[in-house]
Amino acid sequence: MDIIITFIQRAIMQGTPLLFGSTGEIITEKSGNLNLGIPGIMYIGGISGVIGGFFYQNSGVRLNSFLAILIPTACALLGSALASLLYCFLTVTLRANQNVTGLALTTFGVGFGNFFGGSLIRLVNSDTPSISLVTLSKAFRKPLPFAEDLGVFGELFLSYGFMVYLAVIIAIAAGVILTKTRLGLNLRAVGENPATADAAGINVTAYKYGATVIGGMIAGLGGLYYVMDYSNGGWENNAFGDRGWLAIALVIFAVWKPIIGIIGSYLFGGLYILYNYINVSMSVQPLIQMLPYVVTIIVLILISIRKKRETQPPASLGQPYFREER
């Protein structure tokens, strides 16, 4: 029983960065931008938070938990917003190829994260190749009230840091906004058919920028969660691994619906760590970790065979838009 609870807890914690990433990418893709820079942006979000937190922790002032959360979060949002802006400028304003730009951004972002991570590590003259913001991390990891008093319920639902709930709230909000509001309708229109949206008086550029930057910021929070909560405030180069790509896989798995993304992220999170909880030989572990990708491929194939209009990728995904193209 205990082991099952621990497994679910770990799965949720593993799934949370993916949920941030996929929600961000869904919002981005709904505007027609296939941002393959998301893995890079998540790195940038993470390291920006770490840099902000690092200077705050080392500034000598008395730490309070409000600023301990605010400063890294603000820095992560700023860093990921700037990176997304760069992507938008290149793909929307300068109409560059989205795949190429996204991949370049990922190269840059991962490099950026590891470079500054490495530099900070050198700054503290630490022997270990990692940096640790344990004090700040505590603020991030503070569980909800009554978590310890409510037994299994408390452990399963209340024991996480606030960002786990934030991820769910953002995903639900994104789902509601996309399907129930004018804002969401306009955004989906831009992603489906920018010429039509443009003709309807929707500012295509603004929506593409807005969705991509907000999406990037949400994804950046995934990077922040990973360092500040999941890793107890410890930054280690490349530790974030392929989670950014897993987040992009999740977008497909969730057929571009953020609310399905919530379940999907915990499922992927569970698959990611399943090998720790079942009795398999070492060599089978990677095969289990491969499952999310295989499942995603199967979903991708199924939606293309079924051709149900509602589960297709946004029709203009990956295409630049130029009004006077003839």
Binding site: A189, E192, T196, A197, A199, G201
Partner: peptide
């Protein structure tokens, strides 16, 4: 026609207003 296939008639009509 400048309509979005996966939207309903009403959604298309109110789009951008």
């Amino acid at each position: 026609f400048r309509l979005i296939d996966v939207f309903t008639a009403a959604e298309n009509i109110v789009l951008g207003v």
